[in-house]
C-alpha cells in the first residue's frame, strides 16, 4: 500500500501556531485517498526516524532555546535524509532554524542547522498580519498561498537561494525585498502559518505527492472535494488584500 511517513520534529516544543493542523491536513488528505499515513514524533534525544517528509514548526523563544542544541546536532542526519529524497517543511521559528543563525534584538544568537543558506536578525518591530504570496514550487504550476505571519526576525537569503514566493500582501522575509520563505531543493521554509496547509490544499497535495515520490515513484493524487478549503482560501486572500 502506498503510504506517507511524516516526521514531526519537536511537536512538544514547536507548536505555537497550531502546527498540528498541518499534520492533521496531511493525514486527512492521505486517508481520504486510501493512502496510508504515519506521523512520527521526534523530540530531543530521540533517534531521527526514517521519513518522507520532515516537518518543523515554530515555538516561543524559550522553547526554541530548549531544542537548539538537539536540532543543530541533527543537521548532518537531516541533510543525509534530504539527499536521500526526503522533503522538509519548516514554518516560522523552524524556518529561521534552517539558516545559519538567528540574532536577537539584544545581540543574543541562536544557532541554526545551516541546511539552507540564510540568516535571520531580529528587527525593532514584529511583522504581523495576514499575508498572501504567489509561488511556483513546481515549474509551470503557479499557486497562491495565504495565511498569517508574526515574526520579529528579518530573514535574508544567500546568493542562489530562491524565496518560496513573491509577496502579494504582507511583509514576507524582511519587509523589503518582496520575497517570502525559501525553497532550496527539497527544503521549503516559510513564515506563513494559519496553519499553512489547511487553507492551501494545492500546496499540501504538492508536498504529499513529492514526498511520496521518495519511495513510491510518481503518484497521481485523486482530486478531493475542496469547496470549503477553496472558500477559506479565497476569504483569507480577500482579507489579506484589505
Amino acid at each position: 500500500m502506498t503510504d506517507l511517513r511524516v516526521c514531526h520534529l519537536y511537536p512538544e516544543h514547536l507548536n505555537i501556531y497550531a502546527d498540528r493542523g498541518n499534520i492533521a491536513v496531511l493525514r486527512a488528505r492521505c486517508r481520504w485517498r486510501g493512502i496510508g499515513f504515519a506521523a512520527i514524533a521526534c523530540g530531543p534525544g530521540d533517534p531521527l526516524p526514517d521519513a518522507d517528509l520532515y516537518y518543523v514548526g515554530g515555538g516561543q523563544d524559550r522553547d526554541q532555546l530548549l531544542i537548539e542544541d538537539d536540532l543543530v546536532g541533527r543537521a548532518a542526519n537531516l541533510r543525509a535524509a534530504i539527499d536521500d529524497g526526503a522533503w522538509m517543511l519548516a514554518v516560522c521559528g523552524g524556518y529561521q532554524m534552517l539558516g545559519h543563525y538567528y540574532r536577537g534584538h539584544q545581540g543574543d544568537e541562536m544557532r541554526g542547522t545551516g541546511l539552507v543558506d540564510l540568516v535571520t536578525e531580529a528587527g525593532p518591530t514584529r511583522m504581523i498580519g495576514n499575508i498572501s504570496i504567489d509561488c511556483e514550487l513546481r515549474p509551470g504550476q503557479p499557486l497562491t498561498v495565504v495565511g498569517f505571519e508574526n515574526h520579529a526576525g528579518r530573514t535574508r537569503l544567500g546568493e542562489g537561494v530562491r524565496p518560496l514566493g513573491r509577496v502579494l500582501h504582507g511583509h514576507g522575509n524582511n519587509g523589503r525585498d518582496g520575497g517570502e520563505g525559501a525553497h532550496a531543493g527539497r527544503i521549503v521554509g516559510t513564515y506563513i502559518h494559519g496553519p499553512l496547509l489547511p487553507k492551501n490544499p494545492a500546496l499540501a497535495d504538492l508536498l504529499i505527492a513529492e514526498a511520496l515520490g521518495r519511495r513510491h515513484g510518481t503518484v497521481a493524487l485523486e482530486p478531493l472535494d475542496d469547496r470549503l478549503e477553496g472558500m477559506a482560501h479565497d476569504a483569507a486572500l480577500a482579507i489579506a488584500a484589505g
Binding site: A18, G21, I128, N130, F148, H193
Partner: peptide
C-alpha cells in the same frame, strides 16, 4: 485576534 490559527488547537 486577527490570527485564527488557534482554532486548530
Amino acid at each position: 485576534g486577527r490570527d485564527v490559527s488557534w482554532i486548530w488547537d
